[in-house]
């Protein structure tokens, strides 16, 4: 049996090692791997948690047609400081249009606060909700048996297979929860919106507002960010529906899975100049038994600009990553007679 497994694994690993080697060859030599200076903008790896909106709420900027301006006012600088939402299940609200967390989350948060006040760990409540308690700690999530098992697996191994660790695009709502900066550029004369993201893979996203229908069948090519069509629900609210996701991403760092059957309806509002309120309703009949809605605020960073950040540069995580059998996922395997790696994971 061991031999037949070795044969199977050797073939699969050879393909991955080969592709990695070719990729390395094709990539120009990098510098010391230090991310470009981002202190001014406060983004990048060190940008998490910064950029909270401060001061009194300023009026919502608007375009000449009266709809919300989700970008800069001409003559000013600024970017959206996307927050780090590691576990979207802790942002589930009671329904579309609501800002109220589901009661179970409120109870978990109260228990955690009580535990902290009593000197306990921040996880509290048995590690539930926001900790690493797995699917059982998030009973409000409409799990299917397989998605619960995958989430439990990702919890147990502490997300070591997170595709973002490979510098792959976050995909879907996770783009709005990955702690780098983002800019929204509205082009009303072209009836589309372009979003530019500093983080992940320097990726962009396009949203069509020209009334088109979704491509059907093979024309809807599955991608990380999917195919997005927007419409104004009212002058304050942009509704964006996205279909055509591939299965190469997670919903969040904690590892909530999704399938290519997922479609997402986002609602964007800008209640003040300093705040973008983001809401996403996820419907994925391949992974969850019903839809759920998540929401959070994204603060505006006045004066900010998009810095350059290259995730792939000097990504040593990949060289250390080992699979469940202790074998390196990328890079060379130990040679015969060579001691296996004893690096800590």
């Amino acid at each position: 049996m061991a031999r037949i497994i070795r044969t199977a694994l050797a073939g699969a690993t050879a393909a991955v090692v080969f592709s990695t080697a070719v990729w390395t060859q094709a990539t120009p030599p990098q510098g010391a791997g230090t991310p470009p200076a981002q202190a001014e903008a406060g983004g990048g790896r060190g940008g998490r948690g910064r950029g909270r909106a401060a001061g009194p709420a300023l009026p919502t900027p608007r375009l000449p047609n009266g709809t919300v301006n989700f970008g800069r006012i001409p003559g000013e600088k600024g970017v959206w400081a996307v927050p780090y939402v590691t576990n979207m299940a802790m942002r589930v609200v009671t329904g579309p249009g609501s800002s109220e967390l589901v009661p179970e989350i409120v109870a978990v948060q109260q228990a955690q606060a009580a535990a902290r006040a009593g000197g306990g760990g921040a996880r509290g409540a048995g590690g539930g909700g926001g900790g690493r308690g797995g699917s059982k700690s998030e009973p409000w999530m409409p799990w299917m048996p397989w998605s619960a098992a995958v989430y439990d697996y990702n919890s147990l191994n502490e997300s070591k297979y997170d595709p973002e660790g490979y510098c792959l695009p976050p995909g879907g709502p996770r783009m709005m929860a990955t702690p780098y900066q983002m800019e929204i550029i509205q082009l009303p004369e072209q009836q589309r919106i372009v979003m530019i993201f500093e983080g992940a893979t320097h990726i962009w996203r396009e949203i069509y507002l020209d009334g088109r229908a979704f491509p059907e069948g093979d024309s809807l090519n599955p991608t990380y960010l999917g195919y997005s069509i927007g419409r104004w629900d009212n002058p304050d609210t942009l509704v964006v529906e996205t279909r055509g996701f591939n299965e190469n991403s997670w919903l969040d760092y904690f590892g909530h899975p999704h399938t290519d059957q997922m479609h997402v309806v986002e609602r964007w509002t800008r209640p003040s100049k300093q705040t973008l309120h983001y809401e996403a309703t996820v419907t994925d009949p391949g992974a969850y038994t019903r839809s759920f809605t998540m929401a959070w605020d994204i603060p505006w960073r006045e004066g900010g600009e998009l810095p350059e950040y290259i995730c792939q540069e000097n990504n040593r995580f990949l060289n250390r990553l080992e699979d469940d059998f202790g074998q390196p996922i990328f890079g060379p395997r130990p040679q015969p007679g060579q001691r296996p790696s004893t690096r800590s994971r």
Partner: peptide, 12 residues
């Protein structure tokens, strides 16, 4: 190279 060499995180 086939995209499948990278990842698939839907139903395992």
């Amino acid at each position: 190279l086939p995209a499948g060499a990278w990842a698939q995180f839907g139903h395992p």
